[in-house]
Computed example of a mutant assay.
Amino acid sequence: MTIALFDFDGTITNRDTLWEIIRFHKGRAAMYAGIVQLLPALVQFKLKLTTAQHIKEQVLGYFFGEMPAADFTRYCEDFCAQRLPAIIRPEALTAIRNHQQQGHHVVVVTASAQDWVAPWCRSENIICLGTRLEIKNKSITGKIRGINCNGEEKVNRIRQAYHLENFREIYAYGDSKGDLPMLSLAHYVSYRAFS
C-alpha cells in the first residue's frame, strides 16, 4: 500500500484559508477592522513572542467566538463549495488525482480547522486530519481542542490514524517549516512543488 500526505494551506491552496474564510463570511471591511483590533497580538506573533496556537485562538475567538456550531458548519460548507475551488492549485489537484488513480491512500494534514477543509476533502474522496475546534454549549468558543495540527503534531495525528509500517511507500507534500516533521516520514518528498 502507498500513502500520500498533503499539507493544505500554501501547498494545495495558493493562500492561507483562515483569512479567506473570514473574508468570505464577514466581508473585507469587517476582516480589516478585526485585523486592526488584533494588531498588537499579530505583532507579538510576528516577533515570535507568542505561539501560533495562541494567535490562532485569538483570531478565531474574535471572528467566530460564540457562533452556534451549526451555523459555523454551514458557513464552512458554503466556503468549500463557493470560494475554495478558486484558490486550489491546479497542479496540486493533478498530483492528488494521479495518486488516487494509482490506488494510493490520500490524506490532507493541515493546521487549518477541519471544519473548513474536510467538506472539500470529502468531495474529493480525501481523508482530512486537521486542527479541531472546541465546542461548548453548541457554540464555537474560538479555542482549539488539543494542539494546533502543525509541526510535530502533524506526525502525532498521522501516527494516531495510521500504522505507517503498513505502507510500502510514503509520499509527502509541504511548503513550510511546519511541514518538515511530516516530510521526514516520507520516502518521496515534495517541498514547494506547486508554487
Results as ranks from 00 to 15, higher is better:
T2H: 10
T2M: 03
F6A: 00
F6S: 04
D9F: 04
T11G: 07
T11P: 07
T11C: 05
L18A: 01
W19M: 12
I22G: 13
I22V: 15
F24E: 04
K26E: 04
G27A: 05
A30G: 02
M31T: 14
I35R: 10
I35D: 07
Q37F: 15
L38Q: 01
L38H: 08
L39V: 08
A41C: 07
L42I: 15
L47C: 13
T50M: 10
T51D: 07
T51C: 09
A52K: 08
H54K: 15
H54P: 08
I55Q: 05
K56E: 09
E57Q: 00
Q58S: 13
F63I: 04
F64L: 03
E66R: 15
E66N: 15
M67Y: 03
P68C: 11
P68H: 13
P68W: 12
T73W: 08
R74I: 03
C76Y: 06
C76E: 01
E77P: 11
E77Y: 09
F79I: 06
F79L: 08
C80I: 04
P85W: 00
I88F: 00
I88S: 03
I88R: 01
R89P: 11
R89E: 02
E91T: 06
L93N: 11
R97S: 09
H99F: 00
Q100W: 02
Q102A: 09
G103R: 06
G103S: 15
H104G: 08
V107H: 07
V108L: 15
T110W: 00
Q114L: 00
D115N: 07
A118I: 01
A118K: 06
W120F: 06
W120D: 00
C121K: 12
C121S: 11
I126Q: 04
G130L: 12
T131S: 03
E134L: 14
E134T: 14
I135H: 13
I135L: 14
K136I: 12
N137K: 13
I140L: 15
K143S: 13
K143F: 12
I144Y: 12
R145V: 05
N148R: 05
N150S: 07
K154T: 14
R157C: 03
Y162K: 12
L164Q: 13
E169C: 15
E169H: 15
Y173Q: 00
K177T: 13
K177L: 10
G178E: 02
D179L: 06
M182W: 01
L185W: 00
H187Q: 09
H187W: 04
H187C: 09
Y188R: 14
V189Y: 05
V189E: 01
Y191Q: 04
